[in-house]
Each structure stands twice: as C-alpha cells, then as structure tokens.
Nucleic acid binder design. Structure first.
Length: 285
DNA sequence: GTCCAGGCCAGAC
DNA sequence: GTCTGGCCTGGA
C-alpha cells in the first residue's frame, strides 16, 4: 500500500481478502492490488496484507486499539481455538484454507438488517442492496462513501420505495417493520446482550424476517456469541456429509454442531462454510 | 425461456 | 411441531 497510517507486524491469522470473502460482512470491497476497503462504525478504512505486515489507512494505531481491535476479534486467542478445532482432519484443512478469517464483531442493527436481506439470496446481490441502502439513506462519509442508515431513518421509509430503490424484493416490509420495532424500542437490541443464547434467539425471532438461521448469524457476528451455529444450505451439506453421515433437519444440524464444537462452534461454522462453499463440498450432483 | 441462491412466513395438517 | 409452497431479483 503506497500510503498508510500504520502497520501491524507479525499478526497471524488476519487476512483482509479472506475476511472480505467470508460472507459475514457485506461492505468490504476489493480496490485492486490486494487493497480492501471496509465501511463500519462510521468510518472508511482500507487495509492490505503484505507478508507479515498488515497496513491500515483511515485510522491510527490508537483508534485501532480502542475501537477496531474488538471488531476484528483481536482479543480472542486464535492459536488456542485452532488447537482445539484442528484435531479432526477435515477441520484441519478448513483451518488452513481459511487461515485469515476473523470472526468479526459488528454493529448490531446493521447486522440485523443485512442478514434479513441475505435470506434466500447470495453475496453479490446482498452487497449491492446494502450499498444502495447506505447511499440512499446513510450519512455521507469521506471519499463519497456512506454509513449504514439508522433504525429511525429506515423506519420512516416506505416498503415500496425500498423495493424499487434498493432491490430487496419481498423483504421490503420485513426491513421497515423491523426498523420500526427497533426505533420504538419495542425490541431493545442492547438488553439482548444480557440474555442467554436461546432466550436471545427467541427475542430476535420476534422481528419480522428473522428466522432461526438469521438469528444465529446476528448472534454470532454482532453479539459475540461464538457458540452459535447458523445452519445454511452449505453448512447442512458439509455437516451431513462429513460429520453426521445422515440427513437431518437444519435444527438438528445446529444442535449437533454446538455439541461437537462446543464454545468454538461459531468458529468451526465459519471455517466449514468458507471451505465447504469454495470446494462445493457435499453438493448433490 | 428455466432454474436457483447463506430462508422466512403463512396455512394446512 | 412439522411440512409445503410461494416469494423479489439477477445471473447462469
């Protein structure tokens, strides 16, 4: 990176490209030459990994330590996690393949809405919708970028407008209704932090457009519930093929996933997803 | 033209 | 509680 504000040396298991492609966040963009831009927390930052150095621009070292370190999950011991998960052969491969994944700790409302959008969709389309949503309703940031809109703002948008402008399809009313429930604090996203996993899940699922899978994603990617195990089609295929050796319901896959991987279930999930999807694991011909 | 993708919801049993 | 069909949209 030609210009940077600071760099971190010898940071293991941190690769912007892998994070950008891991399907947990939708505002990473490859600007070319290995430089990635991300927008979060009202900031636009760019980063690049070159060998053992991780270059950052748009924030200084102090900001990284105070505000971004947790976002990038830097307070967790990835070595210990990899030791624990690496005991089985498939997971070992998945850990190597997705070596640079961080399990991000993102903003709650943004994660909630983007994962409602993600239902029955795919990454390029989700990203396009989220970018449009930000540019139409978000606060302007530097470089012509936009922050993710607030609950209040989205609560006031009409579903028709959302559908036409942001191309979210039938999820339009889910988004507006959910934004309303958050804006009025009918559902308080902060107090969910205090609840145990199953209770938190239930509360999230009272929001329209949030089912089991989306709730588990929000818990994992925004609430730091690393024992959460979201089950999408890829995880289901991989788990049935490699671990369970039988076809079961998604709910059963989630339960058994948490049993097998314990407190690291969320990490296992992320590596399996990234590896399984790229290798088309368990896909029926 | 047909098919389907990181699911959710409503309605029927 | 479990199962089924319908659903926006865009790209293969």
């Amino acid at each position: 990176m030609k210009r940077y504000d600071f760099y971190i040396e010898d940071m293991e298991y941190f690769d912007p490209k892998t994070i950008a492609d891991s399907g947990q966040a939708f505002r990473f963009t490859h600007l070319g030459d290995g430089v990635y831009r991300n927008i979060a927390k009202g900031q636009v930052i760019t980063m690049k990994r070159e060998k053992n150095r991780l270059y950052f621009q748009g924030l200084d070292r102090e900001e990284f330590e105070n505000q971004w370190s947790r976002y990038f999950d830097c307070h967790r011991d990835y070595e210990a996690m990899r030791q624990f998960l690496g005991k089985d052969p498939l997971m070992k491969k998945a850990l190597d393949y997705g070596w640079g994944i961080r399990l991000l700790n993102q903003e709650i409302f943004e994660t909630l809405i983007t994962f409602i959008i993600s239902a029955n969709s795919h990454i390029p389309r989700i990203k396009a919708s989220v970018e449009k949503m930000a540019s139409f309703y978000g606060k302007p940031l530097k470089g012509g970028q936009f922050a993710f809109p607030s609950p209040k703002t989205l609560a006031k948008v009409s579903p028709e407008e959302l559908r036409n402008l942001v191309k979210v399809g039938y999820r339009d009313r889910y988004i507006v209704e959910t934004a309303k429930m958050v804006a009025t604090e009918e559902v308080d996203l902060e107090t969910i932090k205090e609840l145990d996993l199953s209770k938190a899940r239930k509360v999230l699922m009272t929001l329209p457009g949030v089912g089991e899978k989306v709730a588990d994603c929000i818990l994992l990617f925004a609430y730091e519930r690393k024992e959460s195990f979201p089950v999408d089609v890829w995880i289901k295929r991989v788990m049935e093929d490699i671990y369970l050796k039988e076809e079961v319901t998604k709910r059963e896959v989630a339960t058994r996933g948490r049993q097998i991987f314990g407190n690291y279930a969320g990490y296992a999930n992320q590596y399996l997803f990234y590896y399984g999807r790229d290798h088309q694991l368990g896909k029926k011909r």
